[in-house]
Amino acid sequence: MAKLRGTGIAAVNYPTGMNLGGDPSQALIHATTTGTFVISLSSTDLGQGLKTVIAQIGAETLGVPFENVLIDTADTDTGPHCMGTFASRATHRVGNAVIMAAKEARKAMLEVAAEELEVSPDDLDTDGKGNIFVKGSPERKIDITSLALAAHFKYGRTISGRGMYIKPKSPVDPETGKMDPDSTEAHACVVAEVEVDTETGEVTVISLKSAYEVGRQVNPALVHGQIVGGAFMGMSHALYETTAPYYPSPDHAPGSFSEYIIPGPHELPHIESVVLEYPSVNGPYGVKGVGEMTANAPIPAIVNAVSNAIGVRLTEYPITPEKILRALEKSPKVKQLAENRS
């Protein structure tokens, strides 16, 4: 029995969004009488944190505090259309729609402030703390509650905005496959270190170290959450998960968490990452996307690391202990170990 160590790398791209039939999302923004800004959507938060990052993007563009922005989603009677949360598209598409809506609402807000402060809207700016002030003389200002009240009850003006973003449809050329299927590309490189038990065929992932480039990070803690959670799911795919353990045979289909094998906290490897930011031209504040790709790169990195450890190239996943034991029968490294012993 021996424990063989190996290292593997994988470098990947991941496209943001889709375009099959066009890929649109919309946003509507309005201010209440007291200066709370409601962003109405029909978008879904799967847990990645969409409701949080969209509020950040909205607050940034409006120039108002994060706390003054509410996200109202998802209701088809009140929220305008969104294609949905998939294809690493939500922050990119919905974020762009919110920026467009917020710019229109901001313009209306500054116009009302200009009347109240008796200056041109071009002379005004927001401090992000709830005030609109005259550039160069920050003491001349109005808070957004007073401003919204004035808009409603004095001027009869709405402070609102409409936003829409679409990646237009690009039909695929059936002869050549020419197409424009996405908006931008995020990138990652993952290095996996593994240990293989030659007696049991079990693999321990010691570490997954990665560099990601995702355009702008709207919320670094949430990006980190995707990287760690994705690394774990990628490891799970690489080593454990299948609904057809003897594919293509349909037998032994799991029906519970005791039969469908997903690793638990004991299998958590050391995960470390750095994030680079090269903003994309078409994303909101340069956002690309990070939701899906984090589970992709760890799979080949781990499989390459196991191949490196045992000296036999593996070409499928999941690489279960059974498959590894069969591969070990062909391993020059194991042969060498046996010869050394005898």
């Binding site: 774990f232 997903i262 906290p265 004991h266 958590l268």
Partner: peptide, 20 residues
């Protein structure tokens, strides 16, 4: 001991690291 305690809880999103 924390890992032993939560070994029966499936978390499909976080990868357990932030939970620990």
């Amino acid at each position: 001991e924390i890992m032993d305690a939560i070994a029966g809880n499936v978390c499909r999103c976080t990868g357990y690291e932030p939970i620990l």
